[in-house]
Design a protein around this nucleic acid. Sequence first.
DNA 1: AGACCGATTGACTGGTCAGTCAACCAGCGA
DNA 2: TCGCTGGTTGACTGACCAGTCAATCGGTCT
Lengths: 202, 202
Amino acid sequence: MASKASAPAVDKRRQILDAAIRVFARQGFHSTRVSDIADEAGVAYGLVYHYFKSKDEVLNELFVERWSLLLAAIEEADREGVSPRQKLEAVAGFIVGSYRHDPELMKVIIVEVTRAANSFGRTHLPEIRRAYDSIAKIVAEGQESGEFRRDIDPTFASMSFYGAIEQLLTGWIFEVIPASDADFDQAKSLVVATICDGLEPR
Amino acid sequence: MASKASAPAVDKRRQILDAAIRVFARQGFHSTRVSDIADEAGVAYGLVYHYFKSKDEVLNELFVERWSLLLAAIEEADREGVSPRQKLEAVAGFIVGSYRHDPELMKVIIVEVTRAANSFGRTHLPEIRRAYDSIAKIVAEGQESGEFRRDIDPTFASMSFYGAIEQLLTGWIFEVIPASDADFDQAKSLVVATICDGLEPR
DNA sequence: AGACCGATTGACTGGTCAGTCAACCAGCGA
DNA sequence: TCGCTGGTTGACTGACCAGTCAATCGGTCT
């Protein structure tokens, strides 16, 4: 496909995916018609079905594409020989960075997949779970090395950590909390400070 | 309605609401037909429209009914003259307790409203935000009294705290993490310990 | 009895889309 | 020039379902 000797000047498939991001972000998956995607992409209705076997598959593609990067980033962070706290910082940084870099895509991923475990998320639960597990692994290693306390289940900690970050993104997405560049910069360290140091003074 | 001199043996309206909880929890809001609700309630299709003006209104009713209790509980917790940490414990305890008491209803609230800010949540954003704000208020008071550190924005802390709890419930709902009675018991204190004390040993 | 009225019933309608498909087009090799 | 092939088009169809409504039921009051 993309490995053709000479790629076409415009990659219609990509064009459709990018249009879908915009439309899904604007109207939500359920209330976008396939024709909306085609229109936004400046392409005929039927072409969407030439490249994707269903509307669902378009969303799937967007999710898988992005989530695999996240999984890679978490595992990469774990591989580095730094403190568990720095690993968590790297994970938080990657997620916040993803949002900063392409808020529309992250909105779609979170709102339509990650936070929609009943519909789409269900299909992708295994991949989503893999992220939780990788974070839990970081916490568990921190406990073994004595850098983290041992009386909090790593799975619990992982869910709290991920939940906190996702809630922040959700707050930005729906303008419940301000989303300036300064907020993005702070977010990473504040989340990690909250989770690692706690709210009570030391 | 319910204030009639002699209430009917069966309150059909309530019967419909309870049936809706079960069906929404089982199939999700989008893929339940109004006829599913009627069937589950053992009632004719049209009767749903006698008591509710639309399918949406059924969900709204369920949400408002429950969320107002949550708001009351948070504000009540804040009113008591205890430490901010104990207030957060009360809030976490109420939410976990709600799930324990009626997991299906909480599943519907979270999956279809709270975590669905694009569709339904949008309508209820003000009420949802009120919960965040009340929690932030608890944190802010804790900072003023010196029981919480001052370098973390209360709004941030509030989102992290609420996000952590909601993520735990979501984990239970989708069986990503085990949901035994023991887990419920621990959850409250573990979340609060994580957020207040942090993962790093003191 | 008979009139009245709210609760209850379920067949039906109107509108909406996802997905199909037959036709069309452009480039290229023979 | 003439197929051939794969990308591209958009009208159309079949299914689905929220919401409507006219009819029926059952209790109460006169």
